[in-house]
Design a protein around this nucleic acid. Sequence first.
DNA 1: TGGTATCTTGACCCAACGGTCAACATACGC
DNA 2: GCGTATGTTGACCGTTGGGTCAAGATACCA
Lengths: 211, 211
Amino acid sequence: MGSLPRKIEIREANQALILEAAEKIFAMNGFKGATTGAIAREAGLPKANVHYYFKTKLDLYREVLRYILSDWMSAASTFEAHDDPAEALRTYVTAKMAFSRKRPYGSRVWAREIMSGAPVLEEFLGTTLKAWVKERTGIIRCWIRAGKIKAVDPQALLYMIWATTQHYADFERQIIILNSGNELSESRYRQRTRQVVDLVLGSVGLTSQVR
Amino acid sequence: MGSLPRKIEIREANQALILEAAEKIFAMNGFKGATTGAIAREAGLPKANVHYYFKTKLDLYREVLRYILSDWMSAASTFEAHDDPAEALRTYVTAKMAFSRKRPYGSRVWAREIMSGAPVLEEFLGTTLKAWVKERTGIIRCWIRAGKIKAVDPQALLYMIWATTQHYADFERQIIILNSGNELSESRYRQRTRQVVDLVLGSVGLTSQVR
DNA sequence: TGGTATCTTGACCCAACGGTCAACATACGC
DNA sequence: GCGTATGTTGACCGTTGGGTCAAGATACCA
């Protein structure tokens, strides 16, 4: 199948397998609570094999976070795709909701890392994310000065968007239980995404055009 | 000092000491990641003493959750304190923000429990909380029918309020790092509380009277 | 086909874990 | 003061944890 040497194929396939298993186990139990044995079991490999591809548990954890970060940043980049605040916010919130749906484990690993004091993500938060926030709050301030949206605190708005969208990943279990044990269907989730968009737009004084 | 027998005094004081320490350690590392040794160290007691007051780690964990729940429910009860939606929402959001400020560890233990699949809280969520949500969404639907607020999805609104207010406890570390390493001062936090209230009111079409 | 680099794995090591226990200390009713 | 119930603690136990290793299997190049 693949044209590249089989050895490399195997290596990448196994690494991906382990990373995916690790993301799930770390999401479930956090860094300290996760065991390399559980990760190996989840991946269907012997423990020693996990340690062959990733020297230590911390190395593996760092790799998982790096993997999540790349997806997070690509959702983040949708923010400035539009000039119009309504369109920009709608696109961003929709992208974040999609991320929560597609990678709930990733979101939970992130949340647990922060709750543990962000020992690994500290540097990223203090540099890349901080710069991102500064830029984005600048854009929001522009919108306010231009009278395009209500005068809200940009950071409070950003945090509300993060919190609300990530809630659907991090608290998925709670949402399911409150929904009588049923997962939100694909169509219900799309509907909910629209409702969240409407709430966010409403919070800055923009009424959704559809209604 | 105390008029009640010293033995009981000692017992309650030690239990409270251990519970507080446990809440912090569980918040930091989750159930599996936390160790009874770490809890004992945090409480300034030998490990065996912790096991004297709480038979197993799971017992202690359950007790910590029960302790948190009582505070959570008292914040929840502020919801129906007012007839006017603006006043009710303001009061509720303010109470939840105060809870996040006062008991950040409790909020994080809750979050971690849910992310682990809610093995212990499952029953509470499926009964008490579910009933609470049903009642509250009913109230919100009333407001909508009466034309007092915009027609938003009640559950989506509730989840947004939970997510946003709990974000200030669960992601405290991230917020601090994004704030150049400084905690939000008491006055900044009060200001932020008002900003969050404004966003929530805005999302349902109510403009804060103050502005 | 033979040699080398990479992959696979059961067995193993030691530290740390949750939990127990027996010996001792303290408080309190009598 | 004396006996008993409660509180305190270092030492200990069996298990599980992260990580290692050496011996074998597999893929690749010449």
